[in-house]
Simulated scan of single mutants.
Amino acid sequence: MVQKKLTQDFTISFPSIKGIQSNKEYYVTMCPLKLLQTIFPKDTKDLPPELRAQRELNKNRVLPIKKYILENQDNYIFSSIAASIDREVDFETYGEDPIGRKIGTLCVPMDSNFVINDGQHRLAAIREALIEDPSIENETISVVFFIDAGLKNSQQMFADLNRYAVHPTKSLSILYDHRDPTARLATELATEVVVFKGMTEKAKSSISNRSRKLFTLSGIYQATKRFLQKKEGDEISEEEKELAIDFWNTVGKNMPDWIMAVNKKVTTSELRSDYIHAHGIALQALAIAGNSLIKKYPAAWKRSLTKIKQIDWSRENAILWEGRAMIGGSLNKSQKNVTLTANYIKTILDLPLDPNEEQVEASYVKGQNDFR
Rank of each mutant, 00 (worst) to 15 (best):
K296M: 11
Y297D: 09
S269H: 15
Q284I: 06
K253L: 14
N291T: 01
A278D: 02
W248G: 10
I294N: 05
K265H: 10
V251N: 02
R272H: 06
I311G: 01
N291A: 03
V266I: 11
S304L: 13
L283M: 15
G290L: 02
W258N: 04
V266C: 03
R272Q: 06
A318T: 14
K295P: 04
A300V: 12
R315F: 04
T250P: 12
E270M: 13
I245Y: 13
S292G: 07
D257R: 13
Q284G: 12
L293G: 02
S292V: 09
L283F: 06
A285K: 00
R303Y: 14
W248V: 05
D257V: 11
P298Y: 04
H277L: 13
I276E: 03
L305V: 03
K295S: 08
I308L: 00
N317S: 04
W248P: 11
L293D: 02
M255R: 09
I311F: 02
R272Y: 07
S269V: 11
D274I: 10
T306K: 10
Y275Q: 11
T306D: 05
I311C: 08
K296H: 08
A300G: 14
I281D: 03
D274N: 15
A287Q: 01
N317D: 06
S292K: 12
W301K: 01
M255I: 10
R315L: 12
A287Y: 01
P256S: 07
N317R: 01
K265Y: 07
K296V: 10
I281H: 03
L283D: 07
G290M: 08
E270K: 14
A300W: 12
I281A: 00
L271W: 03
S304D: 11
P298I: 07
I259C: 08
S273Q: 14
A285F: 05
S273W: 09
L305T: 00
N263V: 05
N263S: 13
S292W: 08
I294L: 04
T306W: 09
L271C: 05
K295R: 12
S269W: 07
K265A: 09
M260V: 11
I259P: 01
Y275M: 14
